[in-house]
Design a protein around this nucleic acid. Structure first.
Lengths: 124, 124
DNA sequence: CGGTATCCTTCGCGATACTG
DNA sequence: CAGTATCGCGAAGGATACCG
């Protein structure tokens, strides 16, 4: 994961942390559950591999956006959760993105022309 | 620019649009100015090339987050601006990221230990 | 000043196999 | 169930040159 060393505004630090393909979805799914196991996240997040999931979770923990509880004994059990301070703030931003994303989908559903255009954009 | 076709939640659409290295900074800088020329953005955004700037601006326009006015005659002049609908919504989310980024920097400044740790993270 | 085209490198991430 | 290691490809993005 690469974070630029020279930046124009502080938001770039946060963006460099979140810019990968999976971190935002992972954060959002953990937020929805409150507390959630690794295997549950793997089931819910379409297309993710266990390796990517774990890798991204560790980076999110490193930056203090996510933490986990590990329970002793077998079967093994962990619970991932959003941190109260940094994590929750980011969730606010993701909430807005979620809403804007919803609107995109509504427009696609409402208008086939736009749907075709978005498809074209996705192809590009 | 690749946008995944299967997604878990709508926020992923927005994230796939913004995930590149430059779009969030570009949006924020345009927002700060209100209206701004290409050359001004190129001056302000540290490390960006004209090619990348233009490429990203065009994608942002395609998705309706940014638009531009082109003025006739010489010298050539354009003004880029955030769209009133979709663009402004995204700016809200970026505003939160900007604040969280600020806090990161404050903590770094306040505590050398954390500063060293963030540097280590940046190296990774 | 604003914009396009080409070439080349790097690193994100997917596939796969293995461990406690 | 939870977690680690390796390897290869393709897309993102940097450098550079050129046009209206």
């Amino acid at each position: 994961m690469k974070i630029r060393k020279e930046f124009t505004c502080p938001l770039e630090i946060v963006h460099d942390i979140l810019k990968g393909k999976w971190k935002t979805v992972i954060l959002w799914q953990i937020y929805i559950y409150g507390k959630v196991s690794l295997s549950q996240l793997e089931k819910d997040i379409k297309g993710i591999s266990q390796k990517m999931l774990l890798e991204q979770l560790n980076e999110l923990r490193k930056f203090g956006l996510v933490d986990k509880h590990t329970f002793e004994g077998y079967p093994l059990r962990v619970e991932y959760f959003i941190t109260a301070d940094k994590g929750k703030r980011i969730i606010e931003a993701l909430g807005i993105m979620q809403e804007v994303g919803r609107e995109y989908l509504m427009e696609r559903a409402a208008c086939n022309l736009e749907k075709r255009e978005l498809s074209k954009e996705i192809e590009d």
